[in-house]
Design a protein around this nucleic acid. Structure first.
Lengths: 146, 146
DNA sequence: TTCCTTGCAAACGATTTGCATTGGA
DNA sequence: TCCAATGCAAATCGTTTGCAAGGAA
């Protein structure tokens, strides 16, 4: 079990904030790295064989998000799902199933992404809004729920 | 107090689903029509002078959303905000404040919107996803929270 | 008369927090 | 040694639901 590049990046980022990268957190990160989209605390709890109590999971997710290692997404039924921050995974967008709530990551072509960024910049500026990110959310039914 | 075009449209839509457009619901719709973005049950409760109990508010919002008159948006801290459906207000996107959670509506230029729609269609199809809507969410700090 | 809506109170479920204990650097 | 992390139980908080009374068609 070698310490990969991803773990190294996260460890440094967390350390900068006085946050420890414990074994449990390493396993949470691994689960998120394997996922193809954001995951909720409950989903991670199950994925990790319930080995980490929900309260610890919630605390670790929130701490790692505060440190900038994770990003969160708010879905239906008040469920928050976490994923690795974009500086770790690259910029992407979301396919959100309105039925089961699952979220899948997608990437846009480089040219549309550029166009999008220009528009975001322009629109935000004209609204006096300090934009720091954007996501195109596509709502609909995933293959399982159709 | 005349019955405007908007109320007429909503009344018909609700009626089609066996849903009544009561006085309380009319006031909720009026509050949403005046807002410049989605509003939570708590925000509406306050805006209406707490005259409508939260439970009734939640029930009305959910019933009207099911009937297709309202749409919902999921924001930080697990708060759901409602707004008039797009067939009533026109298609738009969101400026989401990561600090206070407020959401403001914005419209894109027609050409970018068209481009966006094409990409959504293409991306969804290739993922086997049945898309029925999309929103560009711009996260950042609103003028108040900067 | 039939069915929808309303209010209140109780129930829920996701998430948070207090506190004592354990563990890492 | 010192401060952060962990676990459990209790507490929060947004939202939902059961039920009896009120209202519209």
């Amino acid at each position: 079990m070698t310490t990969g590049h991803l773990e190294h990046q996260i460890r440094s980022r967390l350390a900068a904030g006085g946050v420890r990268f414990t074994d449990g957190r390493r396993r949470v990160v691994a689960a998120l790295a394997e996922a193809d989209g954001p995951r909720s605390a409950a989903e991670l709890h199950a994925a990790l064989g319930t080995s980490i109590p929900l309260s610890s999971l919630y605390r670790s997710l929130s701490v790692m998000a505060d440190a900038g290692a994770l990003a969160h997404h708010h879905g239906s039924k008040g469920v928050t799902r976490y994923e690795l921050a974009e500086w770790l995974t690259g910029h992407h967008h979301h396919l959100v199933c309105v039925d089961c709530g699952t979220v899948d990551d997608i990437e846009l072509s480089e040219d549309l992404e550029t166009t999008l960024q220009n528009v975001v910049k322009r629109v935000a500026k004209s609204a006096g809004f300090a934009a720091d990110g954007h996501t195109l959310e596509i709502d609909g039914l995933c293959t399982d729920c159709q």
